[in-house]
């Protein structure tokens, strides 16, 4: 339990939320939320020091390059930006990262991944979307595959995943497919989040909240 203090520095950050509140809504302890605030401060000040993570800052952290366009990074950024105002606020950052916590139920991770892959937000992953994502992945890697091979990969995946054969993958088909291929959501778990206070020990110096655990 914390005593609910926030530093002046923290209160001056737009969209800052009380670590006690964020902790109560997520698998993070109050100390971990405070450690995440240290990470958030670093990310949100890398280009524009305004206490908000802009897309360029997100790209810089992921790719060491603020101009690197990437379909999947765009999708992740947009899903974190719950208010859809073009920036990630601290509360959005913590709540979104909680999906990636090792203790978060697989069901939540599966649903989150589905929303990421449902590019046009139709409630289904369509063949064109899957092909677009495969092409985007090839574009960012050194892998070169002919259009024929890409078509075969997409076709084979649809044969396996689209169990009712209606040409699109619905949330239940996705759930079943992930159950058979659990490695598909491996990237939805960040072991770092279990040790976030160790990764950012500087929070201890700034912390005004005492954890009982």
């Amino acid at each position: 339990m914390g005593c609910g203090h926030s530093s002046k520095r923290a209160r001056s950050v737009p969209g800052y939320e009380d670590p006690n509140t964020l902790s109560s809504e997520t698998p993070f302890t109050v100390s971990e939320v405070e450690a995440l605030f240290e990470l958030f401060k670093k990310l949100s000040s890398s280009i524009i020091d305004d206490g908000l993570i802009h897309k360029e800052e997100f790209q810089l952290a992921l790719f060491r390059n603020s101009n690197r366009k990437n379909l999947f990074a765009d999708r992740v950024f947009d899903s974190f930006d719950v208010k859809r105002n073009g920036v990630i606020e601290f509360g959005e950052f913590v709540r979104s990262l909680s999906i990636f916590h090792p203790n978060t139920p697989a069901e939540d991770k599966i649903a989150f991944a589905f929303r990421l892959y449902d590019l046009r937000q139709t409630g289904f992953i369509e063949r064109e979307e899957l092909k677009e994502m495969v092409l985007a992945l090839l574009n960012e890697s050194d892998l070169v595959l002919s259009d024929d091979v890409v078509e075969q990969i997409v076709h084979k995946t649809f044969v396996d995943a689209d169990s009712n054969g209606d040409g699109k993958i619905d949330p239940n088909e996705w759930k079943d497919f992930v159950a058979k291929n659990p490695s598909l959501i491996k990237n939805m778990t960040l072991p770092y989040l279990k040790d976030i206070t160790l990764a950012f020990p500087s929070f201890v110096l700034n912390s005004e909240v005492e954890d009982s655990d």
Partner: peptide, 25 residues
């Protein structure tokens, strides 16, 4: 040769989905 690669498996290796980079110091 039959294609056995899973499209979602391929996609899941995108650097854009690898958020561990956010934690790099």
């Amino acid at each position: 040769r039959p294609v056995t690669m899973n499209a979602f498996e391929l996609i899941s290796h995108s650097q854009g989905l690898n958020l561990s980079n956010l934690f790099d110091k």
